[in-house]
Design a protein around this nucleic acid. Structure first.
Length: 455
RNA sequence: GGCGGCGUAGCCAAGUGGAUAAGGCGGAGGUCUGCAAAACCUCUAUUCGGCGGUUCGAAUCCGCCCGUCGCCUCCA
């Protein structure tokens, strides 16, 4: 299979370094609720992981929480509460949101605040090797200590410097040098270190946690395109400087950003839709379909209309799974070619739009075969399996609602009306139930009903 | 200013050198149905932002232009 590597800018044949695929995805900084841009990114990497496993790889998946940072501190101060409490609450919310989106949990979720001794050890190591230096309790990484800085984002230090809007701090050797460790200011959480009390800088925690939980060379490191620079560039610089192992990461994967009304959705800009808001209106399957319907490297524009179109599309797949085989039918529908096409699509840098096209083709084939009297149970199993690789659940109703017996009663009465050919009354019942969000379908086996959009 | 994307039907969106340009939503017609719904069948881009060029052949490669977005500052 092929994966597009940001480092080379090309699709490359995927060859993991060992038996186990080592995969690290940058997690969130928990200072506010997750928005649907996060959801999209984590859905994409969830699919990457599920697909790798489907193809027989064993995957170790690590995702961090950067639970100490300026914004968390600001937020906690606003609320008059400890930072640890605020971040912990948001982490719990994160898990709830991701669970609802059917995103499988990572194997390890390290937190920056729980890795301080290792962070200090790595920072000290970088100082010892001459890649970092301390100034008044701050420690900076020296970007010019290697000659590879900029290789991921494909820019060079001189270009950066000329156009940079970075405030020049006199203390730094080079304006692009970045903080590994920040000296404590009043009212901030801090930890004791060889350079006095302080806290880790933004990038170092990811390097330390990935090195610790996955080793010196990872197979896949993922995140949004907005992390390419400076975050991932800095991770490479400090990790490779510390371990002398190159490459730190074999395949860098970056997803395009979700946009809202033509602008990037961003916490700091405030133009965002939270996962919770979105899930009030849509099912997890519809959102997953929405996210996977465009290629992961392209930006995607969010719209309510787009999402509700996906709701109807999900329904199409769901229905193909709901039909049942009858006794005494003819041959069995062979769906093997669809499986092959699915694999072909996904092997090509996770081409989910094409993989979805295969699922829709298969759904149509199942429906058509059913009308021809073929047995479709096996094909349905395959559809369910392949959809599952994309994290789609396609479940019909499971839960019982208090209104169910009343709906059943109305449907029963309507059936009597139909038997008596009281079409007007029967249609009125159907229309009024429709207004209330219940759709009826008359089939040869009786009337079926369901709540619109599932439950 | 520097770097990198993107521009394909009413909308969303694959395809990135060769034979009919995926799929979804929407729309039109038909089959089925008491009528619907669902499902199935048919149709819905002679053409891929514009102009040049390379090639036997380009949506696909190259150049220029137009539009648009991101990164260069915290960000999935």
């Amino acid at each position: 299979m092929k994966i597009h590597n940001t480092l080379s800018g090309k699709k490359e044949e995927f060859v993991p370094g060992g038996d186990e695929v080592k995969m690290y995805v940058c997690g969130v900084t928990p200072y506010s609720s997750c928005h649907i841009g996060h959801a999209m990114s984590y859905i994409i990497f969830d699919v990457v992981r599920r697909y790798l496993e489907f193809r027989g790889y064993k995957v170790k998946y690590v995702q961090n929480f950067t639970d100490v940072d300026d914004k968390i501190i600001a937020r906690a101060n606003n609320l008059g509460r400890p930072t640890s409490e605020v971040s912990q609450e948001l982490i719990e919310e994160y898990f709830e949101d991701m669970d609802r989106l059917n995103i499988r949990r990572a194997d390890v979720y390290p937190k920056a605040t729980e890795e301080i001794p290792d962070i200090i050890r790595v920072v000290q190591g970088l100082i010892d090797k001459g890649h970092a230096y301390e100034v008044n309790g701050d420690v900076y990484f020296r970007v010019r200590s290697g000659d590879n800085y900029g290789k991921l984002s494909h820019r060079n230090l001189d270009d950066l410097r000329s156009g940079a809007r970075v405030e020049v701090e006199e203390a730094k050797d080079d304006p692009m040098d970045f903080a590994l460790w920040k000296a404590a200011k009043a009212g901030e959480p801090s930890w004791e270190s060889p350079w006095g009390y302080g806290r880790p800088g933004w990038h170092i925690e990811c390097s330390v946690m990935s090195l610790k939980y996955l080793g010196n060379s990872l197979d896949i490191h993922g995140g949004g395109q907005d992390l390419i620079f400076p975050h991932h560039e800095n991770e490479i610089a400090q990790s490779e400087a510390f371990t002398d192992v190159v490459p730190f990461v074999k395949y860098w994967m970056h997803n395009g950003l979700l946009q809202l009304e033509q602008d990037k959705m961003s916490k700091s800009v405030g133009n965002l839709v939270t996962v919770r808001e979105m899930l009030k209106k849509s099912s997890a399957d519809a959102f997953r379909l929405f996210a996977m319907n465009s290629h992961y490297r392209n930006p995607l524009n969010y719209s309510d209309e787009g999402l509700s179109a996906m709701e109807r599309a999900v329904e199409r797949l769901r229905r193909a799974l709901q039909i049942e085989d009858e006794e005494g039918n003819g041959e069995t529908l062979d769906a093997e070619t669809y499986r092959q096409r699915f694999i072909e699509a996904m092997d090509d840098d996770f081409n989910t739009p094409q993989a979805l096209a295969v699922l829709f083709d298969l759904a149509r084939r199942i429906n058509g075969a059913k009308e021809q009297g073929l047995l479709v149970g096996q094909a349905q199993e395959m559809l369910r399996e392949l959809a599952g690789v994309l994290g789609l659940q396609l479940e019909g109703e499971v839960k019982e609602f208090p209104a169910d017996p009343f709906v059943n009663l109305l449907v029963e009465v309507r059936s009597e009306l139909r038997t008596a050919k009281q079409w007007q009354l029967a249609d009125m019942v159907r229309d009024r139930l429709g207004d209330l969000g219940v759709t009826l379908e008359d089939t040869p086996k009786g009337t079926k009903w369901q709540y619109k959009g599932g439950k």
